[in-house]
């Protein structure tokens, strides 16, 4: 695979507030409550994104939600979104079938930095559906594999039945140039895999803490123990990237909903270098 830099991000739409219609070409069932849609543009214009960016997905007559892109940024075959059914819009989205249309605004947001980790070990820390927004980054790091030292994925799920992209995890584990550690929070008797927290995986993973960039994609509550485990291994805050979540309405910094302190999560985030937000991370209800 070509390891050259990605083409520059282009402005997706003349008016960022107006959705572009995309057609659903495939629908995949994932773990319980999750599904993946593969979309193709209906207006003929190309769609270019960077790992970590998100779209505002619109279901006709229902509403709009912010969903991270989950596919390979070098794959022109389709725009991939893995979605969990949690609210009105995502439930309506779950009922859509191939041939139906969906509105797309984006891509929005600050992507995961990649070149910053060149020459270092790379550690991915994630759990449950957090693997979906992280997958484009993992794929891109593997696309440019020769620029990195060790590549390690620490993944945790609640049980043995909600391991997202399980087939792909097996495939990655089969590679000689990648460590994949999977843990579950609880397992039936006789389960031969690892049981426990993702933070424990960080403790046992093999990487050089002095020369590692860590990418953490977890809920806000679970980010804290992950960062703590990284600190204990000696990874400093300026080499830890985390992602956060807020209410999004516009995606371009005009509506104000996604503010956290002095940043707009939709354009300054959702990916942050941890040392830039550490001072506000512990303030409740900010």
């Amino acid at each position: 695979m070509d390891s050259a830099l990605l083409p520059p991000t282009t402005i997706a739409s003349a008016d960022p507030m107006v959705p572009r219609p995309f057609r659903i070409v495939r629908r995949l069932r994932e773990v319980d409550g999750c599904f993946t849609l593969v979309l193709e543009s209906q207006d003929g214009r190309p769609y270019v994104f960077r790992p970590g960016q998100f779209n505002m997905l619109y279901v006709f007559g229902v509403g709009e939600v912010a969903i991270s892109v989950s596919g390979d940024c070098r794959d022109p075959g389709g725009l991939v979104h893995t979605v969990r059914e949690v609210g009105t819009v995502t439930r309506a989205m779950a009922a859509l079938r191939p041939g139906d249309s969906i509105g797309v605004r984006g891509p929005f947001g600050h992507p995961w930095p990649i070149e910053e980790a060149y020459g270092q070990d790379v550690l991915f820390v994630t759990g449950t559906i957090g693997l979906a927004p992280l997958r484009p980054l993992i794929l891109e790091v593997l696309n440019r594999r020769e620029h990195f030292g060790k590549v390690v994925l620490c993944y945790g799920s609640r049980g043995t039945h909600d391991i997202l992209y399980e087939g792909q995890l097996h495939q990655w584990r089969g590679r000689f140039d990648m460590q994949v550690h999977v843990t579950v929070h609880s397992a039936p008797a006789g389960y031969r895999g690892r049981v426990g927290s993702v933070a424990n995986l960080v403790k046992i993973a093999r990487f050089d803490p002095e020369q590692t960039t860590a990418y953490v994609c977890r809920s806000e509550t679970m980010t804290r123990p992950a960062v703590q485990a990284l600190y204990e291994r000696g990874v400093t805050a300026d080499r830890i990237y985390v992602t956060l979540e807020r209410n999004m309405k516009c995606g371009v910094g005009f509506c104000g909903h996604c503010q956290m302190g002095g940043s707009f999560m939709c354009k300054d985030g959702p990916v942050y270098r941890y040392d830039t937000i550490e001072h506000v991370f512990s303030v409740r209800e900010l």
Binding site: G61, G63, K249, C250, C255, G256
Partner: peptide, 24 residues
């Protein structure tokens, strides 16, 4: 103060929708 939200409205047929932006 510039914050806004969006409101989606649909007519009774379900075939026509409007997206409004209003101050929030």
């Amino acid at each position: 103060c510039f914050c806004t939200t969006v409101e989606d409205t649909t007519d009774l047929s379900g075939d026509h929708v409007e997206r409004w932006r209003r101050w929030d």
